[in-house]
Amino acid sequence: MVDDSTAQRMKHALVGGLAAIVLAPAAAAVTATVYRFPVPMVGYTSGFGGALTAAVGSVFYLVLGGALVLGALGAVGGYVAVGPKRPAGAGTYALAVLIGLGVAVAGAVALALLEYVIGPW
């Protein structure tokens, strides 16, 4: 039988994972607006004009497996959001969503900086 705290942690893990996946296009759009974002078959896009293109391009990365990575990392963050001495509540769900947003932004920035790791592509 699953105890109450484990069930709460699993709910928070689900919220964190879903938040990371759902917020990924918005994170890509913000990354493109502030810096740049690689869009498949288009190249790097940047500025306000490239925000929508980056958001749509990020869906391509999600389909290729990015959803698994972002979902797993967001779930871990959501699971950790409810600590052993912190009672679950609305604040912890907000924390799980915030952690999911951080994971989505980190993924978008990692794609924007990938050229410096693997070279031009």
Rank of each mutant, 00 (worst) to 15 (best):
A54Q: 05
V39I: 09
T31P: 02
L73G: 05
V22Y: 04
V97F: 12
T31C: 06
V82N: 07
A112C: 08
A51K: 08
Y79I: 00
L98W: 09
A54N: 04
V63F: 15
V56T: 09
L18H: 11
P25E: 09
G89N: 11
G89S: 08
V22W: 03
G71A: 10
T45Y: 02
A110D: 01
R36F: 01
G107D: 10
Y44M: 14
L70V: 14
L18V: 14
T53S: 13
V69H: 00
L62H: 05
A29G: 13
T53N: 14
T33M: 13
Y79N: 02
L62W: 03
V109S: 00
A28P: 04
G65K: 01
A96W: 02
P40G: 03
V80W: 10
V109A: 02
T31M: 04
G66Y: 00
A90Q: 10
V59L: 13
A104F: 07
A75C: 04
G107W: 08
G91K: 09
A90E: 11
V42W: 03
F60P: 08
Y79L: 10
K85F: 13
A67T: 12
A67K: 07
V97Y: 10
V22A: 15
T31D: 02
A67Y: 12
G65V: 02
Y93T: 13
Y93V: 14
V30Y: 09
G47Y: 00
V59F: 14
L95D: 05
V34S: 06
V63G: 07
R86Y: 11
A104W: 09
G91H: 10
V34W: 06
A96P: 10
A26E: 08
A55Y: 01
L68C: 12
F48W: 15
Y93G: 05
V103M: 07
T31Q: 06
I21H: 11
V15R: 12
G107I: 12
I21W: 11
V80G: 11
V34G: 06
T53A: 15
F48D: 06
L111Q: 08
P84D: 15
F48T: 14
G66R: 00
V34Y: 02
I21E: 01
Y44N: 13
Y44T: 06
G43M: 07
A54M: 06
A108W: 03
V59Y: 10
T33S: 14
A75R: 07
L101Q: 04
L18E: 08
G77Y: 05
G17R: 02
P38H: 09
A55N: 09
P40V: 11
G89D: 10
A72D: 04
Y79A: 11
A32M: 09
T31A: 00
A27L: 14
A24N: 09
G71E: 06
A94F: 14
V82C: 05
A19I: 10
A104H: 03
M41A: 09
G78K: 02
P87N: 12
A67N: 09
P40T: 09
G57C: 04
A54W: 03
A67P: 10
A28G: 05
A20W: 11
A26I: 14
A88C: 11
A106T: 04
P25I: 10
G77T: 00
G17H: 02
L18F: 13
R36W: 02
L52C: 00
G71Y: 07
